[in-house]
């Protein structure tokens, strides 16, 4: 099996400050990787570098694209990268309003990606949007409502539907459960777990919530001050952390 994504030596500096330094890993099809660390540890910088939102100072992000095989997405032309962002890739923002069009109905939000890749049959687009609302547990009667009338959890689920409707293979998630109620979080996590399993998705999830990665991630990277200090199987890193910082991070979680 070949990796879906090969990240090599990603480095991003903000002046003299290090955003992230020399990060490398391979992600295989169907794998979910979590990136944890405190605020400012460089996990979001890394995610944005990989997803093409930030230009790193050094490194490669090689992706096995459906259309032309292995490509370094950092040296791709912008139209190619944006096309990738609408087809093979998806990005789930922490704040749903960053990833949704708040002035457009739920159906239009889900349908946009379909229309962006050339679907021109209203009935088909609407059927797919309805199907996806169902998959993220939003009642079909809300299809024509705007996301402004949705709760936070529903908005987040709508964002996920909008991202997954074109059947991406790699999903980047930035604190997908941040800012949500604990009860809503559990539902979202269970939903994500089912979707990842059923669609065979690969995902990279940035979070500071260790419970989230324990449930969703197969593998874990722990970051501190821009460096990856430990990486491995999720339950192994959480239950038997080796690095001093990982031990501190795990032992700092309040037990309920």
């Amino acid at each position: 099996m070949t990796p879906l994504l090969s990240v090599e030596g990603i480095t991003k500096r903000y002046g003299t400050h290090i955003g992230c330094a020399d990060v490398s890993f391979d992600l295989y099809p169907g794998e979910v990787m979590g990136i944890v660390g405190e605020s400012g540890s460089g996990k979001s910088t890394l995610l944005n570098c990989m997803a093409g939102h930030l230009a790193p100072d050094a490194g490669q992000v090689i992706f096995d694209s459906r259309t032309d095989g292995f490509r370094d997405t950092l040296t791709m032309s912008e139209p190619e990268r944006r096309m990738l962002g609408r087809t093979d890739w998806a990005f789930v923002h922490q704040h749903a309003r960053d990833g949704l069009r708040m002035g457009v109905s739920a159906g239009g939000n889900v349908g946009e990606r379909l229309m962006a890749v050339g679907e021109r049959h209203y009935g088909d687009i609407r059927d797919k949007a309805t199907d996806w609302l169902g998959r993220v547990e939003i009642d079909a009667s809300r299809l024509d409502d705007r996301p402004t009338t949705f709760s936070g959890g529903m908005q987040q689920r709508l964002q996920i539907a909008r991202n997954l409707v074109t059947g991406p293979r790699l999903v980047f998630m930035d604190e997908p459960t941040g800012g949500l109620d604990v009860s809503v979080q559990a539902r979202l996590l269970d939903l994500l777990r089912g979707l990842v399993r059923d669609m065979g998705l690969s995902a990279i999830i940035v979070t500071h919530d260790l419970a989230v990665v324990r449930l969703l991630a197969d593998r874990l990277m722990v970051m501190k001050s821009g460096h990856v200090v430990e990486a491995g199987l999720t339950d192994q890193v959480l239950d038997d952390p080796q690095h001093a910082y990982s031990q501190l991070l795990v032992s700092s979680v309040l037990q309920v």
Binding site: V104, S105, G108, G111, L114, M115, Y122, I125
Partner: peptide, 9 residues
């Protein structure tokens, strides 16, 4: 794609 979103709406 966005132009069609307007028509969809």
């Amino acid at each position: 794609g966005l132009m069609h979103v307007k028509l969809y709406e």
